[in-house]
Design a protein around this nucleic acid. Sequence first.
DNA 1: CATGAATGAGCGTTCATTCAT
DNA 2: GATGAATGAACGCTCATTCAT
Lengths: 223, 223, 223, 223
Amino acid sequence: MARSPAAMLPTPLEPTAPRPARGEKRDHILEAAIRVFARSGYHGARVSDIAREAGIAYGLVYHYFKNKDEILQTIFEERWAAFLGVVDEIEAADSSSAEKLRSLASLVLLAYRHRPDWVKVLVFEIQRSSRFAEPEQRRAVGRLFRCVARILRAGQEAGELRAGLDPELASQAFIGALETMITGQVLGVTQLPAEADEAATDRGAVDAVVDLFLNGLGAGATR
Amino acid sequence: MARSPAAMLPTPLEPTAPRPARGEKRDHILEAAIRVFARSGYHGARVSDIAREAGIAYGLVYHYFKNKDEILQTIFEERWAAFLGVVDEIEAADSSSAEKLRSLASLVLLAYRHRPDWVKVLVFEIQRSSRFAEPEQRRAVGRLFRCVARILRAGQEAGELRAGLDPELASQAFIGALETMITGQVLGVTQLPAEADEAATDRGAVDAVVDLFLNGLGAGATR
Amino acid sequence: MARSPAAMLPTPLEPTAPRPARGEKRDHILEAAIRVFARSGYHGARVSDIAREAGIAYGLVYHYFKNKDEILQTIFEERWAAFLGVVDEIEAADSSSAEKLRSLASLVLLAYRHRPDWVKVLVFEIQRSSRFAEPEQRRAVGRLFRCVARILRAGQEAGELRAGLDPELASQAFIGALETMITGQVLGVTQLPAEADEAATDRGAVDAVVDLFLNGLGAGATR
Amino acid sequence: MARSPAAMLPTPLEPTAPRPARGEKRDHILEAAIRVFARSGYHGARVSDIAREAGIAYGLVYHYFKNKDEILQTIFEERWAAFLGVVDEIEAADSSSAEKLRSLASLVLLAYRHRPDWVKVLVFEIQRSSRFAEPEQRRAVGRLFRCVARILRAGQEAGELRAGLDPELASQAFIGALETMITGQVLGVTQLPAEADEAATDRGAVDAVVDLFLNGLGAGATR
DNA sequence: CATGAATGAGCGTTCATTCAT
DNA sequence: GATGAATGAACGCTCATTCAT
């Protein structure tokens, strides 16, 4: 991989020309919304809060978005698509299954360090919004599970991973493990084993979870 | 264990005498609230919905609970404590680490079949709500992680599980895997491999996830 | 006067027989209500607060009083009638006009020391309750003004007070002066000139206000 | 004084241009609130009543005021400050003590004729409300008493008023007398001696109360 | 584009009052 | 008499959304 997975995370707008280009203010609103949703939650966030955070009048929000809900939808759609793009790249990479799992773990576990607000919004606001029940969103999330499942199935077919475990189920377990690990970080409920610095801690966690999923907890496991 | 873990899940009230005993109506309200929260979400649920669901007058809710929020708090506290009690029993049981992991998986994965509303509320309204940031709740959830970590550490010390994997991290991964598996069920995002009947499907999922965590995905794994 | 005016103020129930007599509990409620109204105001006082203060169940309040409003009415009627009785005695006393004014001033100014709650309720809750607009209450208050006016008119006819000042107007001024003096005490807005002790302060205030109304502020006034 | 005291009372908005200027609607709300509070009392007034009286939508009230309470606070603060300004002008005027007392009496006694709603609100909702216990309000009212006391003390020092009477106490008595006289008017409890017309009645009352306070009720008083 | 005044539906909460026991 | 569970009307307040300028 030319780029590290973390570097491929959806990025906020780079400051560009002094004269705001079309769509720039729209993105400012989205980023402000991410910060406000992360801070106050979707229901606790007022449209006026988002506007103030974006430095605009709150009526202007309705020029760019139909309503508050559409802001959250847009955040999800655009960012999730970018995230899925990175996952697709991992799938397509010319590397071993173990390396792909490692890239996935790295992508997810480092996400909170790089985009804490975006992770909070995804985990706490989008996943539990009523809109989440809508088929389109469920399909979008399902794409992640199926992509990981394809990686696993490919590994089985290549003989790198043992057959006999349902790839769908294993993908759920793997993604769930990663999600809970970052959720624990966000809330401070759980602690990753501390290392000399954050980067080392993260690397250690990535190594450990991949080791766990490849080799298992059993006493007979070899490493 | 004389009882199966699933049978030990917090149980709703049994219908009893026509003359309501003290505290019974309070529990009716809690159960009605669980149903309404599961259906509409915390924010979408009106207090009047809860009252109607419980078959009581509007204001009576406020005899038993200070406000809407306290209802959700109480649901979490009472039910989660009961859930933790079962987990504690599993930890204390005289069985192998593998059997304990199997009991845990069974407890969690079967919970949605037995108490779908309670699981929905726990996962979507409590676990992922911003109110979850309150220290008391975080501590309560932390107890689950530490309990599972203790099970794993005891297994390592008994030589049943390999050393070298951080038990805290592994407990996060294990719980996260289970949670995502049921979340997927709730949302219909993911599908467990179908079997002849639901019970068989659940049993298959329990077996598979325990297998995965004990033996790993690696090709060299033996079973 | 055999009794001092202050001693004639409406008195709370004396503790009597151990076995509560009929009507005793009713009076407990009234006294509890005076305390609660004084503390929280009429609107801020809940019927349950009054019941708790009286040490009874709040449903019982409705055995003795039709509703919350009737409690305030009853307080006013009974206590005000007692107060007016004392004023009537002052009017009927065989003493000079100056002495009668002195008794009135003493009665009012000492009232707050003796029955601070009752004074607070009268000044802040009854005078501004909507019921106060009712003819019966207005007539009851009017009786005080007319009684004082009769005292003043009798003094004019006896040659003790100068003619030429409307007794009605002078009675308003005199009562208003006394009421503002105690209101100021209640609120701490105004300060009476401090003396060695409270009793001396009160006596000084009584002397001063009577001096003021008898001799005026003018430089030519003799004393 | 070029202007009569009564003319200096706080004035309501003049109807102006059809296009409402900034801040004008806020004043409409305050004036509507004064009318509604005068009619129904603070507790009896609904925010929707105020909005309807002001001819605006319900929620707009909350654009201009934080809550219902702030409306009453604002009424008091703005109007009372204006009132105090007039009292200060009376104090500063180059006139005798007797003339200043006459101006004060005139200011207060005529206020009810000119702004009956404002007087009702001040007397019944603010002056006698428990919210009045707040330090800031007490200080504001205290300023009136101290201002009048300064007028009296200056009169004593100029030899226009006799020494020996505490100015603070006398200011309480004077203000209290005036307040009770207008309160009596508001409630219809008391009647000022009727004259040919209202203006004559008021003038007579002003003359009488100043006469009373300057010369007293005593038979030896000269006028 | 941009502003923020204006709207009003909606909901949580309070609490006086009733009534079955 | 005594209790307190039960009722439900009433109201303050919020805030997403609209729209005139």
